[in-house]
Design a protein around this nucleic acid. Sequence first.
DNA 1: CTACCATCCTGGTTGC
DNA 2: TGCAACCAGGATGGTA
Length: 276
Amino acid sequence: MPELPEVETVVRGLRPKLAGRRLVRVETRRKDLRIPFPRRFAERLTGRRVEAVERRAKYILLRLDGAETVLAHLGMAGRMTIRLRPNEPPDKHDHVVMITDEGWEFRFNDVRRFGLMTLVADAELDSHPLLAEIGPEPLSAEFNAKVFEAAIAGRRTPIKAALLDQKTVAGIGNIYASEALYRAGVSPKRLARTCKGERAVRIVAGIKAVLADAIKAGGSSLRDYVQADGELGYFQSQWAVYDREGARCPGCDCRGGIKRIVQSNRSTYFCPSRQK
DNA sequence: CTACCATCCTGGTTGC
DNA sequence: TGCAACCAGGATGGTA
């Protein structure tokens, strides 16, 4: 899926067209995605004002008037776009369409339907099952080496798997886990509980740096991901290791180049000579 | 707690 | 060219 940088880019694209606007027409075009839409979802949104567009972890939040929030996740292949395109028929995989009072058309397209969109009362947002267990925002000051070390203390799982666990830290997925560990010089196979002290400092710095760089580039585009205006991100050209099996490591002259291994059934890429 | 596997779903790519 | 197998940015729930 879109990981944190891609979701952040989508949020930044949606915000100028959605925040402060009223939804004059809302349509769901099937009854569920990963989970069912709430009862009368479209009716309950129609006429509401979007007060803010925010991100938490990989979730997109449309804060509505009336103290409710649309909580949305893009899954692996979800796209949210917003354009002026009157009367253009929806695509087969456009599952939600919303029109604002200024005539902008929002579409949630998701071929694989691993995404979701639901409606939550603001009072229940923090304790909502989808959000309650999620760890700190990696780009916030509250995510630091001390907090990170505490989160992984005692865990016998490989550090790569621990980074994919949203309880450890929010928003990291398969691409940025590999990239962050490369920047940190830490092997993805190293047990989480051994990533203490200087290693923890380097991993936290690696996470923050790679996510910030990726946001600057508008995220990574391959296959499904596009920004809210349909443009492509370009961070994939800056990947050091992800999807680069056999390529030269950009940081050293090691012979073997980038290696690919499988952990928890997901591909991991790293440079064995730089990452210990 | 942990590892591991299957599952949801579609479509693009690879290999025979 | 056809077709089947495999693979994919996520998350969850079951098993051992």
